[in-house]
């Protein structure tokens, strides 16, 4: 029963993942003079025209929307770099290339709000979409290796979105394997109907403690 705990409680919505990604730093070139901003989340600025500055993505987008800056796309967002990544992803069946943990969200936010700041934006966009597809296919293949002997699953270099999509499934799958493997964890049928689904056994802790780790590696 514990395996049926509410999946909505344990995952992040796409908006929430994007919210987290908006704290990633990007470089902007402002075109106005503005005093330093002492925010709750940190101090930024002062800003001078044409002098580059590091700010969180949400601030960059806010300034961009008002026409107060240009955003410098991150170094990995070039045709050359992305082509390399895509080739490497295609070459290897197992390994995931290293990309920023939030590459999906960052690139989408930039495409939505700063497309004129990205050189070759169409090409870059289609490369990122290809990389996403290749990687996701690989995630699915990796998941096929899950079996009844697995207590944990480790995939290196997964990104935030990818972890988030597979987390509920992997958690439940491991839970189910663990339960079917240990007869003592399956409560007898008569009592199960009346019990509240709140038994937090060691098995639950083991496979439900899915963490959202920023090093981009998925562990359950």
């Amino acid at each position: 029963m514990a395996g049926q705990s509410d999946p909505h409680l344990s995952i992040f919505s796409a908006e929430e993942v994007e919210f987290i990604a908006e704290d990633e730093m990007v470089e902007i070139v402002p075109n106005l003079r503005m005093d330093a901003l002492n925010f709750i989340c940190g101090d930024f600025g002062p800003f001078f025209p044409q002098i580059a500055n590091q700010v969180p993505l949400w601030l960059a987008v806010a300034l961009k929307k008002r026409g107060k800056c240009t955003i410098r796309p991150p170094q990995w967002m070039t045709i050359e770099k992305l082509t390399q990544v895509l080739e490497a992803e295609r070459d290897s069946q197992r390994v995931f290339e290293q990309l920023p943990f939030h590459y999906v969200e960052i690139s989408r936010l930039l495409f939505d709000h700063a497309r004129d700041d990205i050189p070759d934006v169409y090409m870059v966009r289609s490369l990122i979409e290809d990389i996403r597809d290749v990687r996701f296919h690989k995630v699915e293949t990796s998941l096929e290796t899950l079996n009844e002997r697995a207590l944990a699953l480790k995939i290196n270099n997964l990104s935030a979105m990818e972890v988030n999509i597979v987390r509920p499934f992997v958690g439940r799958a491991l839970q189910a394997f663990y339960k079917h493997d240990s007869p003592e964890l399956i409560p007898d049928q008569e009592r199960v109907l009346d019990r509240r689904p709140q038994v937090v056994s060691n098995a639950t802790r083991l496979s439900y403690g899915a963490i959202f780790r920023t090093n981009g590696c998925l562990e359950f």
Binding site: S10, F12, I40, C41, T204, G209, A210, I211, F212
Partner: peptide, 17 residues
């Protein structure tokens, strides 16, 4: 920064059963 710690606590709270 405290916001960063709050974000961590929020994530943990969301992911923990």
């Amino acid at each position: 920064p405290d916001v960063e710690l709050l974000k961590r606590a929020w994530r943990n709270e969301k992911a923990a059963p």
